[in-house]
């Protein structure tokens, strides 16, 4: 086989293998917990999307792990736009209120904020809102990659050998933590 053919067949077989494995590879029970790319999309979307909302939930990790906008929508109506704006060690201060204000519908009937207050969320450390700032100041090209390319590449999301092993042995358990959009 000449070298040109070797190159050609290497690339064709790679595409074939990637195509097949992309279809048959196991998906985690909760991709937001197990998959880095999905997690990156989740945070970038929370901070950088330009949607307008009717209700914002403000707070820390207890909020984004514990309160589901989807469940609230079931009660309030599907057209009601709700954003879980919780961040790890998130503090409640004027900075976050201003950020919340930017995300409300300009002609909306009401601007509702639900705050999840914990003792820590009122401390000076929490007021730094480091997690929010980390996402907020992320370079534009990275945000673009997380929001625009990564969903397209989700087919190529990586798997770990351990996940593969658990799937094969039927040992995978429901994750202990959940992230709510």
């Amino acid at each position: 086989m000449v070298f040109r053919d070797r190159c050609f067949w290497s690339l064709i077989l790679s595409l074939l293998l990637i195509g097949v494995f992309g279809v048959v590879k196991p998906e985690p029970l909760d991709p937001k917990v197990a998959n880095r790319d999905v997690r990156n999309w989740f945070w970038a979307n929370k901070v950088h999307n330009s949607m307008a909302y009717d209700l914002l939930l403000l707070g820390d990790s207890r909020l984004y792990r514990g309160v589901s906008p989807a469940v609230m929508k079931d009660v309030l109506g599907k057209d009601y736009q709700i954003l879980n704006f919780g961040f790890s060690s998130g503090g409640l201060n004027s900075r976050m209120f201003r950020e919340a204000d930017k995300r409300f519908a300009k002609d909306g009937s009401g601007k509702t904020v639900v705050m999840a207050v914990t003792p820590y969320s009122l401390t000076v450390d929490a007021a730094k809102n480091e997690h929010f700032l980390q996402e907020f100041t992320r370079p534009k090209e990275q945000v673009l990659q997380f929001l625009a390319y990564n969903p397209f590449w989700s087919y190529l999301n990586s798997v770990s050998p351990n996940m593969l092993r658990k799937k094969i042995l039927g040992k995978e358990r429901n994750p202990q933590v959940y992230y709510y959009e």
Partner: peptide, 22 residues
């Protein structure tokens, strides 16, 4: 081996895609 190397390389490429670390 000239016939088997493309198979070996394509497996390596697929592994790089799906088993990449953070």
């Amino acid at each position: 081996h000239h016939r088997l190397e493309p198979i070996f390389l394509s497996f390596l490429i697929a592994i790089c895609v799906f088993f990449r670390g953070p």
